[in-house]
Simulated scan of single mutants.
Amino acid sequence: MDARRVDDVTARLRAAGCVFAEEEAALLLDASPGDEGALERMVADRVGGRPLEAILGWADFAGLRVLVDDGVFVPRRRTEVLARVAALGLREGAVVVDMCCGTGAVALALRTAARRAGLAVTVLASDLDPAAVANARRNLEPPVGSVFEGDLFAALPEELRGRIDVLAVNAPYVPSAGISTMPPEARDHEPRLALDGGSDGLDVHRQVAAEVATWLAPGGLVAIETSEAQASGTAALLAAAGLAVEVVHDDDLDGTAVAGRMPSRSASAARI
């Protein structure tokens, strides 16, 4: 790779405000070997604020290459915390659902974790955005699992009610007033419905908490991504739904997830 060309692209990206300009320059050059026209188009797109992952057509998530289409929410490294917490609920024969799936990155990571552990699981995903559903299907169908289009639990087959062992939710949690302060690659290139969580960022979390207990299996786990500041609010919603709650934060990834565990049948019987 031409060091001078790397320096030139890096300088242009840095001037445009790209924090990881050198790493991005290397990726763009690698994606356009010897094609100066393609490189120029990609650099111009990135300088204009288009997400790097949409330009490349993929994102690195939990060590996996996830396909990313234009206009779809880009998986963040912080969401690896959500995938890690959700993986704690994996077991043989588990039914796993990635809700608000976007590209399907979390579903892909959970299926990979299950395979590495030698577990056979059923992995499903859902999203309200038709573009996200199409993108997730490219990543998941086949052989990972089916992707459904619709609003939260309404998207899922009724026969899953009371049978979900692992529910991973990356619902929007940015307060409406905070959208304007987000980086341009998010606020200008990703769908608002994937970002806007209402006045306090918890509107969709409330909707999930209101129904989650009827969809989880006994002992089932729900994991919801949130911010560190909002975690107590998300945790309170799940606790009010009757779940045992834990907040997990990773400083290195700057990621936070709230886990809620349904009582097992034996625990429920003991209380009765």
Rank of each mutant, 00 (worst) to 15 (best):
R5Q: 12
A259D: 08
F148C: 01
V85D: 14
P172G: 09
R12V: 02
V121S: 06
N170M: 11
L27R: 13
P33C: 02
Q230H: 01
R192V: 03
A217I: 03
V144C: 02
A3L: 15
D151S: 06
L90D: 13
A16H: 02
V68M: 06
A171K: 07
D165L: 08
A83N: 14
A131D: 13
E141V: 05
R5G: 09
E141S: 11
P218N: 00
E211V: 01
F148T: 06
D70E: 12
A136T: 04
D30L: 11
R261S: 07
D196N: 03
A236S: 06
S232I: 13
D188G: 10
V85M: 05
L110N: 07
P263A: 05
E53F: 00
A239P: 05
V95A: 13
L108Y: 10
L56G: 01
L193Y: 07
G104K: 04
I272F: 07
Q230C: 04
A31M: 01
A117T: 10
T234S: 05
N139P: 01
A117H: 09
V174P: 13
V166E: 15
F148S: 08
V106E: 11
T112N: 08
A26K: 15
R115M: 15
R138E: 06
G178L: 14
A114Q: 11
V123Y: 00
D60S: 14
E92T: 10
C18S: 12
P191L: 10
L29F: 06
R91G: 12
V9G: 11
G48V: 02
R46F: 03
S199A: 06
S227P: 11
G118H: 00
R5C: 12
P175V: 15
P130Q: 03
L238S: 12
D127Y: 01
I179G: 15
